[in-house]
Amino acid sequence: MNIIEIEHLKKYYGEVKAVDDVSFSVEKGEFFAFLGVNGAGKSTTISVLCGQQSRTGGSVKVAGKDVDEAPAEIRRKIGVVFQNSALDKSLSVRDNLKYRAALYGVTGREFEEKLRELTAQFGLKDLLKRPVGKLSGGQRRRADIARALVHSPEILILDEPTTGLDPQTRKSVWETVNAIRRVRGVTVFLTTHYMEEAADADRVVILDGGKILANATPLELKNNYTGDFITLYGAKEEDVRALGLSYEKVGEALRIAVADTAAATELIVKYPRLFTDYEITKGKMDDVFLAVTGKRGTE
């Protein structure tokens, strides 16, 4: 069952076509990734989806209802974590959650119960009384996500949630998001320009210049848009060059591009002296993105 259905969505700013005839759907409970560089149209699509901006054309439905016809009802189904934290830095984590919950009618005892649940799930117990301005980047992101879930939404929209975070904090944020999916079964709609963050998604849409260029599972994308790669260790570059195949240096190794796994096997069997220390891998999402858009993404 589709929880989000977008058909022929257009959003123009005068001559600029921020989103141009975009159609896709998201299944309930799915981990959906919207992949694109800055300015691809990801945030504009989310703004229209959340009812923040009007659209030039097309239809946007959430749980079967048009966002213009039942905006308040739809907004109750959505929790959003923006790229820039929207928490009040001078207020405590508890106050931030309390004032947010009240906007959805969650107050009093109902809020206290919700607070206990979120505190346990996000490890916020020691942070509740601390002003948000004094939290680390990772702690603040956890509080951001908890705040977006305070009204138990069906869809969690994460708009570039890890931009600007260090690798350790990014890992911690993803552990939190994965735990939410396991425990709550919530639909996660991720926008990102980090290619590898989209690799774990159930479905990936690649957006560029306001248009959808690809829409498939990560495996389908890798199979359709990239070949396999043999990473070869301890070989001489002139020997690899003699193969007449495309390759690149990756540290001390050489990474040879081949059409698929069968071609890799054939090559290894043909040159057993050359291929003594190697590994075969599928292409990365970055390779997919490069093949689809012609642009190098952010790993």
Binding site: C50, G51, Q52, A72, E73, R75, D88, Y104
Partner: peptide, 12 residues
Amino acid sequence: NGQAADLFVTPV
């Protein structure tokens, strides 16, 4: 700071 945009995704 973006809090206004954040407020406008609520049903208020």
